[in-house]
Design a protein around this nucleic acid. Structure first.
Length: 931
DNA sequence: GCAAGGTC
């Protein structure tokens, strides 16, 4: 069997189809992994890297005393499978193979991925022949040629990739651990460091610094308006920017009629058709359509997986010879682009445009299938149309412009105007994404005199450099060689998720700045793109067998040791610097009570806003628990309280904007304060003026302090505190009700618990006790369906009964026995005869009496007489001696208070029968017997 | 819990 290993499933399938020719390919799924077989060949796709490098065991504990971050530099490195299913399948197939061909992508990572597959094969089949197919596009011609000219795996090329892996892992992991530990950050808040991410972050930080330190310069622009044949012409002073105001004013004053045309130059300009899309230019073009880098890539991958466009991760801007451009045009025919395709076929440029970069891995991004707007949906269609139009544009002729340059003299002051007219639209009729603005000047001749309609002197300021947009950053990263076509957009995502940067255009956060500061001061190697350049040079040498992988890695290890010499010497300094700089991230502004800073505090799952003046100042604002989202500070500030706004963020959920924490605190407590009977608007204002916002604060205050604060008598203050206590109690019960309802009523769309509680409150149901007394109709009105409502009522009643009995003093253990015997309510205790209770629960009648006595007393009812155990047992015996009277009947007689011969003898058969259901005749027999 | 690189 000939096993062919491709880089990914989709390539495996296409390689199989091409090699099989007319033969049918059998696709088989083994678990979740597909194989494609024909003849004696089987093709299987990897998933890129199926193994990952990691440190040898023993380095998992970040805080280990022996395995410190520095020891990671010299730690052994192992490869471990990340895609177990694929690894197992490859090895299973390898055992049976007599030839293995590695057919991964034609680039460094592809060679490394190929070598990983090679090692997996060798591990189970040491003797099988393994060779390599190299192709730069999966087209029939390329694939066939590649398989007719099989070569060997290039181990030097793969070793270059391995060197990169090792260097990245040890630098990244060691520095990440060091700096996170120094700044005491763990879990989700670690501070990551890496060869690509750190220089990228440094660029964003650097740009922000430039913006902050930018000093705007004032300058002046001078222009005039003239007119010919009713067309306004704007001409600018040839001096351009005037930095000297006096000079600008003088030029303005000197601009006088006559205005004479001094020169007219007509020319032509070629407007070159755009070059084929690689990943970066595609992302830039997509960002003009309003798509973020990550979104553009997601949509492109989707289109690729469904066969509409070619592989979207490429560095190539030159169509390979093997790519059949005519066939692609034919594929697009008949669809929504029919007219455009026909035009391109008729007017096609002799050779397609080509960009500066040419590589072997994949062709430029181009359409591969025809699609409709309906089938793709809005966003995918936007991207598909962009790819199609770009492809067509690269085959279209250049556009041509007629240009006019005109100079004027206004009594000695020189002016100029330029015009442009589109002579031939060429590619511009296909590709409307970049605007081409025409400015048509009227026909002018030298010596002609024109009127001056207006002279404008505009004062302007130089602008700071712009922040990086995502797409601009990706362009710059590419220029600097940072990251790859597949990873650049992910790096930005990583910086965002580490909360190093935010917004688009990208701004660094305080954490982002602090990390770059620390690294710049003590480990600048990792913040500079230079490191990537050097690494690439070294990789180049490895590829050419001029240096070994181990040699390059050893050199890198030594460098990292020197970096650690510096870092470790300044560990505590680095830590405090980062912590001090980032503390601000949680600081919101002045405490209303004492003026110190308010700060967001996170303690476990709970979070709140506290005062840095604690414990002298105890002012604080509670926040929802972190399950609702982590509280962070946001840009906006409350003009009234001068506090930063707060937001709760949670993965996968929309952010919850709390806004000004103090405004929100006040608003959410007004209702509770109004529950106090003596509360007035005026009183509330006085409380707020003293930074007292909650009923619990009022309840917790000393009357004299409260009296002083709101300027009332001490007696009144004491009354206020009492009212606050009552309000608190109501609130406590309300919150208990909320929890209770939440536990029993499952949440459903359009039926939020908040809404249910509101409805219940409207009906006067404010706690569990009130709920237990409600009827199903009322519950239904609150928006709970009947079945759930009944369940809710039963649960509420059960809980209230149990509470009443517990409160009366019935011990928990006995309570369980009563409940098991069907005795659940306080009424049961008061009205059921003691012998019945004792018999039903197996509890000693004397104990039962004690419980009944407790409950009756609690309810203010008279307690029944005590029955001793001996009386009870003797009575039972007496009753059982009556002929025809059995155990079951005795238990029923208990219900009517009959427990011995004496009580039975004096019983009224009529009454007893109605209670117990025992026929009157039988009762008369029993009584007759006793008499 | 760390990187960057493949791919989904």
């Amino acid at each position: 069997m000939h096993l062919i290993i491709a880089e990914k499933n989709i390539s495996a399938n296409r390689i199989a189809q091409i090699l099989a020719g007319n033969e049918k390919v059998r696709a088989k799924k083994d678990g979740s992994v597909s194989t494609y077989s024909f003849d004696t060949k089987t093709v299987v796709g990897l998933k890129g890297h199926v193994v990952e490098v990691d440190f040898e065991p023993g380095y998992t504990n970040w805080r280990s005393e022996t395995h410190t971050p520095r020891t990671l530099i010299d730690a052994g490195i192992v490869k471990k499978p990340t895609e177990k299913k694929i690894v197992n399948l490859i090895q299973k197939l390898s055992r049976k193979a007599d030839l293995v061909t590695i057919a991964t992508d034609y680039d460094t990572e592809g060679e490394l991925i190929g070598k990983e597959a090679y090692e997996l094969v060798r591990a189970v089949n040491p003797n099988v022949r393994i060779n390599r197919a190299r192709f730069s596009a999966i087209t029939p011609a390329e694939i066939r040629t590649a398989f007719e000219n099989l070569t060997d795996l290039d181990f030097d090329l793969a070793a270059a990739g391995e060197a990169r892996q090792t260097v990245d892992l040890m630098w990244g992991a060691a520095l990440t651990r060091f700096i996170s530990l120094a700044a005491r950050r763990g879990g989700k808040n670690i501070l990551s460091v890496g060869r690509v991410q750190s220089p990228t972050l440094a660029m964003i930080v650097e740009r922000e610094r430039e913006i902050e330190s930018f000093v705007p310069q004032t300058y002046w622009m001078l222009s005039l308006e003239t007119e010919k044949d009713g067309v306004t012409i704007e001409a600018r002073h040839t001096a351009g920017r005037f930095t000297d105001h006096e000079a600008a004013l003088a030029a303005e004053a000197g601009t006088k009629e006559p205005l004479v045309v001094t020169d007219v130059k007509e020319g032509q300009k070629n407007d070159r058709a755009p070059t084929p899309f690689d990943t970066t230019t595609f992302i830039v073009a997509a960002s003009r359509l309003g798509l973020s880098a990550a979104n553009a890539m997601r949509l492109a991958e989707d289109l690729y997986m469904n066969g509409y466009i070619s592989y979207p991760r490429t560095d190539n801007t030159v169509y390979p010879k093997s790519l059949n451009l005519n066939a692609i045009l034919n594929t697009l025919k008949g669809g929504g682009f029919d007219k455009d395709v026909a035009w391109v076929q008729q007017n096609r440029r002799p050779v397609p445009t080509r960009g500066k970069k040419e590589s072997t891995d994949h062709p430029p991004i181009h359409p591969t299938g025809s699609a409709t707007r309906e089938a793709l949906g809005q966003d995918r269609w936007k991207v598909y149309e962009l790819v199609v139009r770009r492809f067509l544009a690269t085959l279209s002729p250049d556009a041509k412009w007629a240009t006019t340059r005109c100079t004027f003299d206004a009594s000695g002051e020189p002016y100029k105007a330029t015009g442009g007219r589109l002579l031939y639209a060429g590619w511009r009729r296909i590709y409307p994404y970049s605007e081409a603005k025409e400015n048509i000047l009227p026909v002018l001749a030298p010596g002609e005199r024109l009127p001056i309609k207006k002279v404008n002197l505009e004062e302007k300021e130089t602008q700071p450099p712009a922040r990086y947009s995502q797409s601009r950053l990706i362009q710059v990263m590419e220029e600097l060689g940072l990251g790859t076509k597949s990873t650049r957009h992910e790096v930005i995502g990583k910086l965002v998720s580490r909360r190093y940067v935010e917004g688009n255009p990208l701004r660094p956060t305080l954490v982002g700045r602090a990390v770059i500061d620390a690294l710049d001061n003590h480990a600048e190697t990792i913040t500079e793109p230079e490191m990537t350049r050097t690494l690439e040079e070294h990789m180049q040498l490895i590829k050419q067998s001029r240096r070994s992988r181990d040699d390059v890695v050893t050199e890198s290890r030594e460098m990292l040791h020197r970096v650690f010499d510096k870092l470790e010497a300044h560990k505590s300094e680095i830590g405090t610097e980062i912590m001090e700089q980032t503390a601000e991230e949680h600081t919101l502004g002045p405490c209303p009570a004492c003026g110190h800073d308010l700060r967001i505090r996170h303690i476990g799952v709970s979070q709140f806003i506290g005062c840095t003046g604690y414990p002298e100042c105890r002012f604080n604002i509670s926040l929802p628990g972190s399950t609702w989202g982590k509280a962070i500070r946001v840009e906006a500030t409350c003009p009234e309280h001068n506090l930063s706004h707060v937001r709760l963020i949670r993965k996968g959920a929309r952010p919850w904007d709390i806004g000004c924490p103090l405004c929100s605190h006040i608003a959410s407590n007004v209702e509770a304060l109004r529950m106090m009977p003596s509360m007035t608007d005026d009183l509330m204002q006085r409380l707020h003026a003293h930074h007292i916002y909650t009923v619990s604060e009022i309840a917790g205050m000393q009357p004299e302090d409260l009296a002083k604060a709101v300027d009332v008598e001490k007696k009144e203050a004491a009354e206020l505190a009492r009212e606050a206590e009552d309000a608190l109690e109501v609130l406590r019960r309300r919150s208990e009700l909320r929890k209770f309802v939440r536990k029993i009523v499952p949440p459903r769309k359009g039926r939020s618990h908040a809404k249910i509680i509101r409805n219940l409150l409207e009906q006067g149901i404010g706690d569990i006790h009130a709920l237990s007394l409600a009827d199903v109709a009322a519950i239904k009105k609150a928006g709970i369906p009947e079945a759930t409502g009944t369940e809710l009522l039963d649960a509420a009643r059960g809980l209230c009964n149990e509470r009443a009995l517990r409160e009366a003093g019935v011990p928990a253990v006995s309570l369980k026995k009563y409940q098991a015997g069907g005795v659940a309510t306080p009424d049961d205790f008061c009205y059921l005869p003691i012998p019945y209770l004792a018999s039903k629960t197996g509890i000693n009648p004397e104990t039962v009496h004690k419980h009944v006595d407790l409950v009756c007393r609690h309810l203010g009812r008279p307690a029944p007489q005590k029955i001793s155990r001996t009386v009870f047992e003797r009575g039972r015996k007496e009753l059982l001696e009556v002929p025809g009277l059995g155990e079951a009947t005795v238990d029923r007689l208990y219900l009517a208070g009959i427990y011995d011969a004496a009580t039975l003898r004096v019983a009224d058969p009529e009454k007893v029968s109605s209670i117990t259901g025992i026929p009157k005749a039988r009762l008369r027999d029993y009584i007759g017997h006793l008499k």
